[in-house]
Amino acid sequence: MAATDKIDGTSRMTIQEVSRLSGLSEPTLRYYEKIGLISAVERDRSSGHRRYGPAVVETIEALSCLRSTGMSVRDMRAYLRHLDTSDAGRLRELFQRNAERLAGEIERMRVRLRYLELKADLSSARERGDAEAERRAVTDIMPVIADLY
Rank of each mutant, 00 (worst) to 15 (best):
G53Q: 12
V41P: 02
R74Q: 14
L116M: 09
T59P: 04
T14H: 04
I38G: 07
R90F: 09
E17R: 00
I38E: 08
R81T: 15
T4L: 09
A88Y: 12
H49P: 04
E17C: 00
V73N: 04
R112P: 06
T10W: 03
S68Y: 04
D84T: 14
T85V: 05
V41E: 06
M13E: 01
A99P: 00
R112H: 06
A88N: 11
I35C: 08
K119Y: 06
G23D: 10
Q96P: 01
G9P: 03
R135S: 14
I106W: 00
I15G: 01
I35N: 12
S39P: 10
L24W: 03
S39I: 02
T139W: 04
A78S: 13
K119I: 08
V138M: 14
I38N: 07
E134W: 05
S39Y: 05
E26Q: 14
D87Q: 13
R92M: 00
L91Y: 01
R81M: 01
S22F: 02
A131V: 13
A133L: 10
R101G: 10
R108A: 13
S68H: 07
A2P: 15
P27C: 07
K6A: 03
M76P: 13
T69G: 05
L80W: 00
A40R: 11
R77C: 08
F95G: 10
